[in-house]
Amino acid sequence: MSLELILFFVLAIIAIATALGMLLSRSAVYSALYLVVNFVSVAIFYLLLDAPFIALSQIAVYAGAIMVLFLFVIMLIGLETLGGELNWRQLVWPLAMGILLLVQGVFLVIQRVGRDVYIGQTGTQLSDPSLMARVLFTDYLLPFQVTAVLLLVAMIGAIVLSKREKSNQEA
């Protein structure tokens, strides 16, 4: 068993355990912190897959910005504890659906990809962010600019939604 395989299994166990912890913990703050650990372990997977730029943006955007926003909203609303909400009798159908989805996914992976496709060793080209930037700013220039518009619209939407409606009360 190679070192990479051992690292993969340890990280996979951490990722699955933190995902389960996020699902089952009573407190929303603990859910958010479990999700941060999950994002960091996925970032290490990206490093293993020769994508250092994606790994660092995962940590900066997901584990940094998005989860801080989540924690900020949890603290703002003040919902640290959620009470006993998991009713096991209602869980039968969702569990069956989830297991069905998992079986379907694994079956499709094995059928379409097969178990023998190994990741090649020559990945030095892929880990170069400047080559990725060249592809991003030539072939994908229009989607990149559409992304800028999308972020602007999201910012305006967030401001409009979270503004208190004073003008309606005065009118």
Partner: peptide
């Protein structure tokens, strides 16, 4: 060397856990 199907199966597991979270 890790086969790519391991990564895909892990991705399927994480996706199913996320879908389960939305449901429960």
């Amino acid at each position: 060397m890790v086969p790519v199907s391991y990564y895909l199966v892990l991705s399927a597991i994480l996706f199913s856990l996320g879908a389960l979270g939305v449901l429960i």
